[in-house]
Structure formats: structure tokens, C-alpha cells
């Protein structure tokens, strides 16, 4: 691609920042970002903990191990690459929920291909990964053979009503490996975002109720609203934020409201 994928821009936002923020939207955290040794950390949200990949060039297992080491014991982590700007929180949640007491790894599969960087790993598999790495067995398939792995194929994923509604083509799993992939993805239509305005921001009933935008800042701009210390946004009725970099996806509703809740 000529540029580290993490630094590629997605409608004004670096890939790494977007993916990291989308994972924060999808989980309760913590968020660990694995960088190549010596790599300048890309722009990331403040919640991100950056760790270095143990040994560069040894494939995803090495990076997965570095990430899992930075997490608390016995939690389940969603692992993502940084080249999936269309990742949707509904898919992340579905994959995470596919692990259980009997399942150590839940991994997506499309067209017969497993996606080890679109998978949930229990941190308890770390010794198994380290054992494989020390034996120079670097293919994730080796891990999947040794631990209790559940494969989620397209039909399993699309059985989830949220995914079938919000990501029906499973664009979440679309890796951008070549410049043409990147160009094609960028040409895709931006997600449609529902806009709600409250208080003094509701000026007339004929204001647009949807905009197309990849980030909160872009949505605010499209809605003619200036995000400042007096105006905040609630994402899907949940988290309140004034951060323009918050990534948006299909199905999102943004409520713009006064930051002053005094009454």
C-alpha cells in the first residue's frame, strides 16, 4: 500500500484511530494496540495501551500473544487488524458472545477462509500460543486445532439480527490489502446516520433527520451544528461525547443536546 495500514486515512481519520475507537464502542475495554517494534505509534484514543510486537514479521500469532499478555487474566478479547475500516460493532459483539466456558476462540470465516484477526480469544490460550511460537509454528490454524475453537461462518454471523440489518454484506471482514481495495472501499457510500436535535438545537421541523458521515464531527458539520463545550452528542442514547473523532457506522443515532443539564 506504500503506507503503514494503520496510518491510512478513512474519510479524514487514520485507520488505527477509527478501528480502536470502534472497538471501544463495542466493548467495555481495556483496549490494547500492538505496534511493530520501533514503529511510531499512530494517532490513537487516550484509552489505548500500546505494546510492542515481540518479533516483527512472524505473523499474527506473535502480535496476538503480545496483546493478550497486556490483558487481565481470563478475559475474552476481540482481536482485529487495522485494515478493516468498515468493521461494525454488532459483529464484534456477536463474535465476543460466541465464546463461552466451552469455547476458547471464536473466529469468523468467509468463503472458506478463516479470519484470525476477526476473532475472540480467551486470554487463557496464551500459553498455547507461546508454545507454538517457541516451536516456530506460526500459523493460527495450528492454534485453532489445539484449543476449543468455534467457527462463525457467514450464515452463523448473518443469523444475528443486528448484523443482518446493519452489516448484511459482512463488510466488517473486508480487509484492504491492495490500493485498489482501498480505492473501492473509499468509494462506498458513507453510513447513514439518524440525527436528533434537542432544546435550542431544534430550530424547525424541516431540518434533515439523516446525514451521511463517518465520524461525529462530520455528522455535526453536515447537520450544521458546532460541537463545542456547550453542545454534546449522545451516541445511540448511551455515551455522551463531544469528540469529533468518534467513528460512526450504519444504524447509529446521534442526539445533539446542551452540555448544560441544569434544571
Amino acid at each position: 500500500m506504500g503506507t503503514p495500514k494503520a496510518d491510512l486515512m478513512w474519510h479524514g481519520q487514520p485507520f488505527a484511530d477509527r478501528i480502536a475507537r470502534l472497538l471501544l464502542r463495542s466493548t467495555d475495554g481495556p483496549l490494547v494496540v500492538v505496534a511493530a517494534p520501533g514503529q511510531d505509534p499512530p494517532k490513537l484514543p487516550r484509552e489505548a495501551v500500546v505494546v510492542e510486537d515481540g518479533r516483527e514479521g512472524r505473523g499474527p500469532l506473535e502480535a496476538i500473544a503480545a496483546g493478550l499478555r497486556a490483558l487481565p487474566d481470563d478475559v475474552v478479547a476481540y482481536v482485529s487488524s487495522t485494515d478493516v475500516p468498515l468493521i461494525h460493532p454488532s459483529l464484534v459483539r456477536r463474535v465476543l458472545s460466541a465464546t463461552s466456558a466451552d469455547v476458547d476462540v471464536a473466529v469468523c470465516e468467509t468463503e472458506g477462509r478463516l479470519h484470525p484477526l476477526a476473532a475472540a480469544y480467551r486470554t487463557t490460550v496464551l500459553p498455547e500460543i507461546e508454545s507454538l511460537l517457541s516451536a516456530d509454528l506460526l500459523r493460527p490454524m495450528k492454534l485453532f486445532e489445539r484449543v476449543r475453537t468455534r467457527v462463525l461462518d457467514a450464515s452463523a454471523l448473518l443469523a444475528d439480527s443486528a448484523i443482518s440489518k446493519l452489516d448484511p454484506t459482512l463488510a466488517s471482514l473486508l480487509n484492504l490489502n491492495a490500493p485498489t481495495d482501498y480505492e473501492r472501499a473509499q468509494a462506498l457510500e458513507l453510513p447513514e446516520i439518524k440525527i436528533e436535535r434537542f432544546g435550542t438545537l431544534r430550530r424547525s421541523s424541516d431540518e434533515p433527520t439523516t446525514v451521511k458521515a463517518a465520524t461525529l464531527g462530520a455528522a455535526a458539520q453536515a447537520a450544521g451544528i458546532e460541537l463545542d463545550q456547550h453542545i454534546v452528542a449522545a451516541l445511540n442514547g448511551d455515551q455522551i461525547t463531544g469528540e469529533a473523532a468518534v467513528p460512526l457506522v450504519t444504524g447509529d443515532t446521534i442526539a445533539f443536546l446542551s452540555a448544560d443539564g441544569g434544571g
Binding site: 432544546g199 449522545a234 448511551d238 442526539a255 446542551s258 434544571g263
Partner: peptide
């Protein structure tokens, strides 16, 4: 002006 905003969140 709080009421509908509070309802939304």
C-alpha cells in the same frame, strides 16, 4: 429544555 434530551439518554 432538559426533558426530551434526558428522555433520549
Amino acid at each position: 429544555g432538559n426533558l426530551l434530551a434526558f428522555n433520549a439518554i
